[in-house]
Amino acid sequence: EEEEKKKEEIARLLGVSKEDVERILKKNNLDIEQLLRRVQREN
């Protein structure tokens, strides 16, 4: 699934687990696209 791939990509870029990414998304109330763009910009 596309969303899972995005979570895995974010996890890889941040050096965290996919579960961490899911927690970040919930905690910050971000959607996956916003987080992915933010992470890609910083790297």
Rank of each mutant, 00 (worst) to 15 (best):
K5N: 10
R41L: 14
L30C: 05
I10F: 03
R41H: 14
E9T: 12
N29V: 05
G15W: 01
K7S: 03
K18V: 15
E2R: 09
G15Q: 05
E2N: 11
V21Q: 00
E19Y: 05
K18A: 07
L13N: 03
I10G: 02
R12N: 10
K5R: 14
R23M: 12
I32N: 01
R41N: 14
D20G: 05
L14D: 00
K5P: 04
G15P: 00
K26Y: 06
I10T: 05
N43W: 04
I24D: 02
K27M: 14
E8S: 11
E9G: 04
I10E: 00
K26I: 13
Q34W: 05
R23K: 13
K26L: 11
E4F: 06
K18S: 07
K26E: 14
R37A: 15
I10V: 14
K26F: 05
N28E: 15
N43T: 14
E19N: 09
L36A: 05
I24Q: 04
G15V: 01
E3Y: 15
N29W: 05
A11I: 03
L35H: 02
N28S: 14
E2S: 12
V16Q: 03
G15H: 06
E9Q: 11
L14Y: 01
E3T: 12
L25Q: 03
L14P: 00
V39G: 02
Q34G: 13
R37M: 06
N29C: 07
E4P: 03
E22L: 05
E22V: 06
I24E: 04
V21Y: 01
L13G: 02
V21L: 06
D20P: 00
E8N: 10
R12P: 00
V39R: 01
S17C: 05
Q34R: 06
K5H: 11
S17D: 07
L30M: 13
L35A: 03
G15L: 02
D31Q: 07
Q34N: 09
D20E: 15
V39N: 02
E8H: 11
S17A: 07
D20R: 07
E3W: 08
I10N: 00
R38I: 15
E33N: 13
E2K: 10
E42Q: 13
L30N: 05
L30W: 12
V39C: 08
K6Q: 11
E9L: 15
V39F: 03
V21N: 00
R23C: 05
K5M: 12
E4C: 08
I32H: 01
R37Y: 02
K27Q: 14
R41Q: 15
R37L: 08
R41E: 15
E3H: 12
K7T: 05
E19C: 08
E33L: 04
E42Y: 04
G15M: 03
Q34D: 15
S17W: 02
E9C: 09
Q40D: 05
K27P: 02
E8Y: 09
V16A: 04
V16W: 05
R41T: 12
R41M: 15
Q40G: 07
Q40P: 02
L14F: 02
E3L: 15
E19R: 10
E1N: 12
S17Q: 07
E9I: 15
L36Y: 05
E33H: 06
R12G: 07
L35I: 04
K6D: 04
N28I: 10
R41D: 14
E3A: 13
Q40I: 13
Q34S: 13
R37V: 11
K18H: 06
A11W: 00
D20Y: 13
D31T: 15
G15E: 04
K18Q: 07
K27W: 07
E8W: 09
E42C: 10
E3M: 15
L14G: 00
Q40S: 10
L13W: 05
K6Y: 08
I24S: 02
E4D: 13
R38L: 15
R38D: 15
G15Y: 01
V21W: 01
E22G: 03
R41I: 12
L30T: 06
K5V: 09
E9R: 09
N29D: 10
V16M: 08
R41Y: 07
K26V: 13
K7E: 02
E33T: 05
Q34A: 11
L36Q: 04
R38S: 14
K26Q: 13
V16D: 00
S17E: 06
K6M: 15
K6L: 14
K18W: 07
N43F: 08
V21P: 00
E1G: 12
R38C: 09
K27R: 12
L13E: 03
A11Y: 01
E19F: 05
I10W: 02
E8L: 14
Q40Y: 03
L35V: 03
D20C: 07
R23L: 14
N43I: 15
L30V: 08
A11T: 03
L14Q: 01
E19K: 10
L30D: 04
E22Y: 01
I24K: 02
E42V: 08
L14W: 02
V39S: 07
E19Q: 12
R23S: 11
K5Q: 12
V39M: 08
Q34K: 06
L35P: 00
I24T: 03
L30G: 05
K18R: 09
D20V: 14
E2Q: 10
N29R: 09
N28T: 14
D31Y: 04
E9W: 12
E3V: 14
K27Y: 09
L36E: 05
I10Y: 03
L36D: 02
Q40H: 08
R23E: 13
V16L: 09
L13A: 06
G15C: 06
L35Q: 01
S17R: 07
E9Y: 13
K26R: 12
I32E: 03
L25F: 01
K26C: 12
E4Q: 08
G15S: 04
I24N: 01
I10S: 01
K26W: 04
L36K: 03
N28Y: 15
D31R: 05
D20K: 07
A11K: 02
V16S: 04
L36T: 02
K7A: 04
V21M: 02
L25W: 01
R37Q: 15
L30S: 04
E8D: 11
R41P: 06
V21K: 00
L14H: 01
